[in-house]
């Protein structure tokens, strides 16, 4: 089995594009649920449209991953560390799926069609369902918190590998 030192170019591109997207979406989300300023509508509209982009990207990214070999974890990691590394990555993927889906469903049940860059609109229910809206609205908020925590852990682990363990884990994604 070959063991590349680096992630493929396509995987690195997906990773950094989604990193930028996820961080902007989380920041936009935190701002727009508080603000009463006129730009709130603009940022909300863009947030929803980019949510659709994020959903498409994460699917493309998973498909892309199936076709590429990824660098193995450093051999000297304990089996517990290996398990945490793998589990946290699958959890990240899961959250990247769950965020746009919960976001869409809260809009769907509130009867709010989503305009995607003026190109098309995603459908919404004709009869509003406030309880289902509540489920997905609260879920979207909790998942966002979990995603922020996991991103922080992910960044901390990458820095730990680079500066403390001084291995190739961070460089494999650069």
């Amino acid at each position: 089995m070959s063991n590349p030192h680096k992630f493929s170019v396509s995987m690195r591109l997906f990773h950094w594009a989604m990193a930028a997207l996820v961080i902007s979406m989380l920041a936009a989300g935190l701002l727009m649920v508080r603000s009463l300023e006129p730009w709130q509508l603009s940022i909300l509209t863009v947030h929803k449209a980019f949510g659709v982009v994020a959903a498409v990207l994460v699917i493309a990214r998973l498909v892309n991953r199936l076709f590429h070999e990824i660098p193995a974890l450093p051999g000297d990691l304990s089996s517990l560390q290996k398990f945490v590394a793998k589990a946290s990555h699958w959890l990240l993927y899961l959250l990247l799926f769950a965020m746009p889906i919960s976001g869409y469903l809260m809009q769907y049940f509130a009867g709010r069609p989503i305009d995607v860059f003026g190109w098309f609109r995603l459908p919404a229910v004709l009869t509003v369902d406030i309880e289902n809206y509540a489920v997905f609205r609260e879920l979207h908020g909790w998942l966002a918190m979990a995603l922020m925590a996991l991103v922080a852990l992910h960044v901390a682990a990458a820095l730990h590998h680079h500066f403390i363990r001084k291995d190739k884990v961070l460089r494999s994604m650069l």
Binding site: M32, V33, S35, L36, E37, P38, Q40, L41, A110, I130, E131, Y133, A134, R137
Partner: peptide, 15 residues
């Protein structure tokens, strides 16, 4: 524009 943002907060609470 602020009406929309405030209604959203009211709606979230009562939902």
């Amino acid at each position: 524009r602020a009406r929309s943002a405030a209604y959203a907060e009211s709606y979230r609470r009562r939902a």
